[in-house]
Nucleic acid binder design. Sequence first.
RNA 1: AGGGAUAUGGUGUAAUGGCAGCACAACAGAUUUUGGAUCUGUUAGUUUAGGUUCGAAUCCUAGUAUCCCUGCCA
Length: 781
Amino acid sequence: MAPNFITEIIERDLEAGRYPQIVTRFPPEPNGYLHLGHTFASFLDFQTAVQYGGRYHLRMDDTNPEGESEEFAQGIQDDLKWMGWEWGEHLYYASDNFERYYEYAVKLIRLGKAYVDSVSGDEMARLRGTVSEAGTPSPYRERPVEENLDLFARMRAGEFLEGAHVLRAKIDLASANMKLRDPVLYRILRADHYRAGTAWCIYPMYDFQHPLQDALEGVTHSMCSLEFVDNRAIYDWLMETLGFSPRPHQYEFGRRSLEYTIVSKRKLRLLVNEGHVSGWDDPRMPTLRAQRRLGVTPEAVRAFAAQIGVSRTNRTVDLAVYENAVRGDLNHRAPRVMAVLEPLPVTLSGLDSERVLSVPYYPHDVVQASSDGLVPLPGGQRVPPEQAVRGVPLGTELYIEQDDFSADPPKGFKRLTLGGTVRLRGAGIIRADRFDVGADGNVTRVYATLLGEEAKAGGVIHWVSAAHALPAEFRLYDRLFSVPNPERTEASTDDLPEPEEDAAPMDAAFLRHLNPNSLRVTRGYVEGSVAADPADTRYQFERQGYFWRDPVGSREDALVFGRIITLKDAWAGNAGEATKAEPRRPKAEAKAGPQPTPHAPQPTALTPEQAAEAARLSALGVSDADARTLARDPELLAFINMAATDSTLAQVASWTVNDLAAAIKGDRARVQPADLAPLAALLAAGKVTSRVARDTLARAAESGEAPAAIIEREGLSARLDPAELARAIAETVAANPDKVEAYRGGKVGLMGFFTGQVMRATGGKADPQAVAQGLKAALEG
RNA sequence: AGGGAUAUGGUGUAAUGGCAGCACAACAGAUUUUGGAUCUGUUAGUUUAGGUUCGAAUCCUAGUAUCCCUGCCA
């Protein structure tokens, strides 16, 4: 896991000793299968814990019985284990803690922080208000504690119909954060739970259950995706109200989606239910089990997860990153064999007798790159390269790929042409002498001659011996969707607001983008050596791609090979299989909507009072821009109004706006306005540099000490001896000979670096202009 | 409309006031018994406008764009 904003927080927490070790959790709801999107989240949760010597938990977030099942819970565990994760005893089910959640709810009621509400759902939504209007209290909001306790107990006892009552937190109906307007904690739901059975008819909501479960497990860093940012307020409220300490904290990261794929559970289900794919494990699906059946290795998936970065923005990752991870993994583990996917018969002359060639499983570069000098056989056993060979029979009847012969070759064609030569991988060079054509005009057979070793050929093609090869079916998978963002309904600009019919018909628009060629099936031949290999061997069929036997469809007497991924194909753009994606649209076009209109920098309008205020400040010497900014902000204005109105005001105003504003608004600025004038005077008199002044100001803002006192105490106003500056410059130059050379070589951007070094060496006391002059002289002299 | 989050090459991500870097992609060359792999090189970026500073991707002000929030889902 590359360093990111979360590891930064963890390192800080560890350093501060806030937790003895970190604990994370991955909390899927068992109502579907894991997909590539989950890979990122689980990797972030688990790998981060591993990296910092902590512990990770797997938790089934099974608090809503609808849609959840043991099958999914098991499937999720299988997939995660396949990925190589081991949580040991730290497998948790939220449903195991229903009793404890209940107790905490009772505690909240006793604290007067929760109440049973009895309005209808519609009514509650109405009372919640809108984003711009505060909510209004339900008539039941002030129910006495005893009545709440009684009602809540009877809810649990099953005395009420679904929807009759809910338990709500009593937080703030006027909050701008809608999540805080008395969120529902429990609802009545008469549903069988796949684990708890009929024991409960009330179920806790995510916002209540999740923080509690984190705390109960001892989780320290609870990571979730960005859409839960607003929910964090409830999280913190619960932790504080219930007094958990030490307590977990929630951190949000941006989701990662992948080009050409969808991850919406509903949409995936639609693909399965409508038969667009053969099931959840159809190799074209983004689910982990599908990728597993496809033949992708867990190592490749992990490498992918490790490569995509972590940030606080939702992003769509280039499919090539995933493909690159898959290829990179297979390149070093897949023995090369030959298979002809679309056969063209070749009759060979010049071959005295049938023979068996010994052909290496790996090209020289894979051997070279091997760290131990060994290389894996199909069974996985690592052997010296000389032993990594198989016998390949060569007879007079062969098959080559239809694409590898052209009677009318395009420019740059490097394969077999009439009268031309090509190398048969491992067998020698042949020349095509003539060919037969079928009724439809297609080439049906090529007659070729095997030449001696002195012959030359520009290209290499793969082949199999017709008499020895095994017939096989090949399933050639391609991306399921033909556009990078199938989930985005790109028609959304033309269709109007769209009368939303509940969540109902679901924009099946994404189905339009289904790639009709996502599965192509061919029949051909594979070299006989594979018959002896383990069924889960992943191969590279030379020049075609990585394949393995389909774990579901392949039988010993009816081989089916599925293509895990193609090889990169630099030729495809010219001719080739042409399943390439259409060229990507430039950013400007891809971004829907009108271009931002260039507008003149228009100062925002001030109210008459603000305008008067700004004018008054301007008259006192404050710059217009600062004056306007100050006039618009009451807190800033209050601050500046306490400062001395003398010649220093302009400087003080500038500091207030540019350096102190955030602290003042956050009520963290402890420096006194009146203390600013002396500092400004020092600056104006040339006693301190502006660098020193600003540094001091920042410190004063935190400590509350008068800036001038800091300067006095630390002697910061002492003039810098020119000799000292010269020495600092000389030392800096001497310490960085390589940078000096680079600078003299034309990398003038390094001046900033040198300036920074000198400034630091002199504690900011050097006059920037003198530094610039001195450095220029030193570097160019 | 109110609140919140975010914005760096085509894509993803670093730089925590001082050299805009890395990976993938693309392109070019070398090499190659896979039009693969490998190696070398090139192209290309700080959302906009102002301001502070010797110096701004970073700090300040105001815009713009995108996403999230008004479930008894998670």
